[in-house]
Design a protein around this nucleic acid. Structure first.
Lengths: 156, 156
DNA sequence: ACGCCCCTGTGCATCCTGTGCAGTCTCGGT
DNA sequence: ACCGAGACTGCACAGGATGCACAGGGGCGT
């Protein structure tokens, strides 16, 4: 779907002030309330706004350690099956199939560096995982920053 | 902060049904509305709920290609300065300092594989970046899945 | 010129929110 | 066993916000 600047400004408003109401947004943007509502509905139903939910931050409730993990899996297992197995481990936050040397890339959280070992063991315990090589995140400069991209897309 | 099962169930409700009101949540959970409100306020102010905003999905508005990019930077530049420079490129969604062979790990989006080259060039054009090695995401099994972890944390 | 789609402005009934308060309950510490 | 702090409850009220509907005005592509 293509988005225009009004869409981007709406999303920007609701991102900056989570206490924003549709009515107030329409006042700020100087458009009709129905317009804001229609834009939001359109973006939600088309998937441009994938979710609009409270986002728990693992760092804030006891999981300060994050790591990326490149996994090599046994050829007999399908990627989907392995991903489903990994989904059963709550510490696994994200799983992608990737190109390159390894097969899967996972992002995991842990309570400490020592606890990370437990998590990685749990990942490896998935029979299909042959090898895993991980890098620990030392500092997150920013993440989940899709708004600038949306604004860039709106400009053309 | 420590969370209990009620917290987790509240977050679960608001995650599953984005059209959930505090009042209806209190009815479903059979607790007072003020309780739900107090829990939400506490989680938001303590950072357990980091954000509660519409999440634009790059795949849905013209950026179907995602890649992870391991960056080696010139020793004369600080990580923060490089991260700030990368933040100016909207296609860069995420930047972490990591342990291991490389210095930074970035996640980038692009309109196509060909366009990915343009993005990577932009990243490399940041003078501080010496080398970059990227893997393309072929399939995302799941991502941004912090709720199961919150529920696991609530159980103990 | 025409039809179509989007935006606008308006109105209304309904529901939700923010807020405050007093009473009760629970749990941990002494 | 007792006490106190903090949490939960139930209630009430005013002010908004929402969902919905509808008619009119523009802009755009055919």
């Amino acid at each position: 779907m293509k988005v225009d600047e009004l869409d981007a400004r709406i999303v920007r408003l609701f991102t900056d002030e989570q206490r924003m109401s549709v009515l107030e947004a329409s006042r700020i943007l100087k458009v009709a309330r129905a317009t804001v509502q229609a834009r939001l509905d359109r973006m939600v139903s088309s998937g441009v706004i994938a979710r609009w939910a409270p986002q728990p931050e693992p760092r804030a409730f006891g999981f300060p350690v994050v790591a990326y993990c490149a996994l090599t899996i046994h050829q007999d297992f399908g990627h989907d099956a392995v991903a489903a197995a990994l989904a059963r481990i709550p510490e696994v936050l994200e799983v992608h199939t990737v190109s390159g040397d390894s097969d899967l890339m996972a992002r995991v959280a842990a309570r400490s560096n020592a606890d990370l070992q437990r998590v990685l063991d749990a990942v490896t315990a998935t029979k299909a995982v042959v090898r895993s090589s991980s890098v620990i995140v030392l500092n997150t400069h920013f993440e989940g920053r899709t708004l600038p991209l949306l604004e860039a897309a709106a400009r053309r």
